[in-house]
Every structure is written in structure tokens, then in C-alpha cells.
């Protein structure tokens, strides 16, 4: 089995290692799979892990910014609204692939929280007078406007969000 290992320095000064395994051929699978807990504190670690992975594959800063934004908005929504009234800690699975679709980054987020279809969320009305503008839905609105495609499925009590982002 071949693998490559990316070493990333995290914010606390510790190295974290991302192993990318390749069982079938000589070409590395350009993918990253990891999970975080439903805590806002885990977001920073998530950003760090993703940034290290994308930089290792020469993804430019513009695109890294967008991937960061997509993950922050969607994962924050899951943390804030997905597990209401459930005290125990839950896993949120994050999977990125640079190979699944030519010129695009494939992002999949899975969680076991309450059913939530992002496609049904209304866009915020920023044309209203300032005092009447509400900020709910702003994150999803941003995400929908930077990606090229989004697919939502509810399967086996899981929310599965799949997104495709064009690489700059």
C-alpha cells in the first residue's frame, strides 16, 4: 500500500499528520476524509486541516478561501441547529476530493442531526431598509452563490450534502 503524508502545524503548535492512502495504483487519490465533533471550537482545527490539504495540492488561495467559507457556513449550521435538545457529542463527517470531477473540488458533509434541506432555505432580503434586514440564511445564500452545484439527500437518518466548487 502506498501513502503520502502531509504534515501541518496546528494553532497550538502541534503537528498533525494527514495520511492519504492509495491502495490500487501509483496515482495518489487526491482526497481528504476526517470528522469533527459538533463544537464551534472544532472549526478552527477543521480549517487548518483543510487548508493544509489544499495547499499540498497547489490549490490557490482564492479557492481555499471559498472551500473554507462553504465548510464554515454549512458546519456551523449543523452545530447550531442540527442537534437541538441532544446533549451527547456527535460526529460530522467531511470529505473532499480533487479528483472526482475535472477542474472542480467535490465536498461532502454528513451528519446525523435533524433533517435539514439547505435547498429549501429562503434567501435573505438585503434590499429592505436597514432596520428590517434579518441575517438568517445569509450563510447558505453565500454558499449557494459560490458553488456550481449542490445535492441534498436524507438517507439512513443522515443529512448528506454534496457540493461541487469550480477551481480558480
Amino acid at each position: 500500500m502506498q501513502y503520502c503524508c502531509i504534515r501541518v502545524l496546528n494553532k497550538s503548535g502541534f503537528f498533525i499528520y494527514i495520511y492519504i492512502f492509495n491502495m490500487f495504483g501509483s496515482v495518489m487519490k487526491e482526497e481528504l476524509k476526517f470528522s469533527i465533533k459538533n463544537n464551534v471550537e472544532d472549526l478552527e482545527e477543521m480549517n487548518f486541516t483543510v487548508k493544509g490539504f489544499l495547499e499540498a495540492y497547489d490549490v490557490i488561495d482564492n479557492t481555499i478561501f471559498k472551500v473554507n467559507l462553504i465548510l464554515e457556513e454549512l458546519v456551523t449550521n449543523i452545530i447550531k441547529y442540527g442537534f437541538k435538545g441532544k446533549a451527547e457529542v456527535h460526529d460530522i463527517l467531511i470529505y473532499l476530493s480533487l479528483k472526482k470531477c475535472e477542474g472542480q473540488i467535490y465536498i461532502r458533509i454528513e451528519d446525523t442531526g435533524d433533517e435539514f434541506n439547505p435547498l429549501y432555505a429562503p434567501a435573505p432580503e438585503t434590499e429592505l431598509p436597514l432596520e428590517n434586514i434579518k441575517v438568517g440564511g445569509l450563510g447558505l445564500h453565500l454558499v449557494k452563490n459560490i458553488i456550481s452545484n449542490i445535492v441534498y439527500q436524507r438517507f439512513d437518518n443522515r443529512n448528506i450534502q454534496q457540493l461541487w466548487l469550480k477551481r480558480d
Binding site: F65, N68, L69, E72, E73, T76, I133, V135, L138, G139, L142
Partner: peptide, 11 residues
């Protein structure tokens, strides 16, 4: 970097 959480503060 700014996300919707940051925009919210400015709003």
C-alpha cells in the same frame, strides 16, 4: 477572511 458570522456583526 470573513463569513456570515462576521457580516452579522457589521450589520
Amino acid at each position: 477572511y470573513i463569513s456570515s458570522a462576521g457580516l452579522r456583526v457589521l450589520l
